[in-house]
Amino acid sequence: MRFSRRHPLFVAVVLCASVIVVARPTVAEGDGGGVPGTHSEEGVSARVARLFEEAAVATRRYEAGRQAAEAQKTKARRLEKLLARERKQIAVLNADLGRIARAQYREGGGVPYTAQMLFAENPEELMRGRRAAWQADLAVNNAVSKSRRAETRLAADEAKAARAWRALEEWKTGLSGVKQTIQQKLEEAQWTLQGQADAAVAAGACRGAVRLDQPDDGRSRAWVAPVATYELSAGYGSGGERWVSRHTGQDFAVPIGAPVRAVGEGRVVKVSCGGAFGMEIVVEHADGYYTQYAHLAAVTVDQGDRVTAGQWIGQAGTTGNSTGPHLHFEVRVTPELGSGVDPVPWLRKHGVEL
């Protein structure tokens, strides 16, 4: 793949790419004593949260690298046409050199000037001939210089393009490696966290709130979705073998450890571990409704705590009656099961579109 050296934007992009590779995110290491398998619950939860952030950064950088590569491919095709045009121009110049040389030969350009003076019958005619020969020589010299400059420029273009393309490929490879490393560490930490959650649920006793640093996202909305990034799965009222009658909430497919947010301001009225919902939280809101967050892998609040909209109150998991990582979210008119309403229109009424 080739590029023209007359387009400095490509080099600037590659230099930026190199900076990104150097400034790759630091992968969080074990923070619960440093010995594998001995992390405290709080240490693993914090590690998962940090790795989620680093994975998001790595994904954004990798996506930026992929888009840059696609843009360069498009640019490469355009610049390849310019280089092809340069080659055609060089071929035309070489043809011109041959034509001029042949013309000089036919017009006596190879006869010594002294001999031409001896045999000339008309000095004025001789001078006109010499002037024409001088102009022809000048044309030849100009054509030769132009051809050499074009060939030099073409060689420089191709060399610079090769270096730039190699740098871009190394950049993409580096970003891919960073992303893969973080994902591997994240997966390991996720299942460690889930194992601790399963043990707590089996014992029927939560270990207490895991205090995580809250995101500095400038929360200003009164109501938000319970998770930031998700895919909707089982909805309210749907049927299924794992439910006694109908599904009582809305499920959000998210990975283990994904931060779970309070949808609105309220007070935590229940934190429990055990039973079909596994690890769960129930929050009472000022309008008299209650929201439930179930199948968690960790909780970051205690019963009685006040929470705000968007505050991290737990981490998603797959505890209890669950077939895979997700958040089970309910809206109720009482704190207890059996009083649920459809969460989707309820959230929509509060300005939250899923």
Rank of each mutant, 00 (worst) to 15 (best):
Gln184His: 06
Glu121Gln: 13
Thr248Cys: 07
Pro325Met: 06
Gly32Thr: 05
Leu186Trp: 00
Ile182Met: 10
Gln183Leu: 12
Arg348Glu: 15
Ser238Arg: 06
Val254Pro: 07
Val254Gly: 03
Val227Gly: 10
Glu353Met: 13
Arg221Glu: 14
Trp165Arg: 13
Tyr113Met: 14
Val244Cys: 00
Asp96Ala: 09
Val44Leu: 09
Leu9Asp: 11
Glu151Gln: 15
Val92Ile: 09
Val282Pro: 02
Ala69Glu: 15
Glu280Leu: 12
Asp137Cys: 11
Ser45Asp: 05
Gly208Gln: 09
Ala136Val: 10
Asn321Gly: 08
Val271Glu: 02
Val283Pro: 02
Ser238Gln: 11
Gly204Ser: 03
Gly33Glu: 08
Ala298Val: 05
Gln190Ala: 02
Phe277Gly: 15
Gly324Phe: 05
Glu41Lys: 06
Gly275Met: 07
Arg221Leu: 14
Asn142Phe: 02
Val260His: 02
Lys73Glu: 14
Val260Arg: 01
Pro255Ala: 08
Gly177Ile: 04
Arg221Ile: 03
Ala55Val: 07
Ser339Cys: 09
Ala298Gln: 02
Asn94Val: 01
Lys81Val: 15
Arg77Met: 10
His7Ala: 14
Tyr105Lys: 14
Gly34Tyr: 03
Glu107Leu: 10
Gly288Trp: 08
Arg166Cys: 04
Phe119Asn: 04
Gly274Asn: 07
Gly177Val: 10
Glu158His: 00
Thr248Ile: 03
Ile90Cys: 04
Leu296Gln: 06
Thr248Phe: 00
Lys160Pro: 01
Arg2Asn: 15
Arg306Pro: 12
Val35Ile: 14
Arg267Tyr: 02
Ile313Cys: 13
Val271Gly: 07
Val344Pro: 13
Val178Ser: 08
Val144Arg: 05
Ile20Ser: 11
Tyr236Trp: 10
Leu337Asn: 05
Arg87Gly: 07
Gln104Cys: 13
Trp346Ala: 13
Arg66Ala: 13
Tyr290Glu: 04
Arg332Ile: 11
Ser272Pro: 07
Arg106Trp: 06
Arg332Cys: 12
Val22Lys: 03
Arg87Cys: 07
Gln315Cys: 06
Ala159Arg: 11
Arg61Gly: 01
Thr59Gln: 10
Ser176Lys: 13
Asp213Ser: 12
Gln116Met: 15
Trp171Ala: 05
Met1Gly: 12
Thr152Trp: 02
Phe10Tyr: 08
Gly218Ile: 03
Arg332Ser: 03
Asp251Phe: 04
Arg6Ala: 11
Ala197Thr: 09
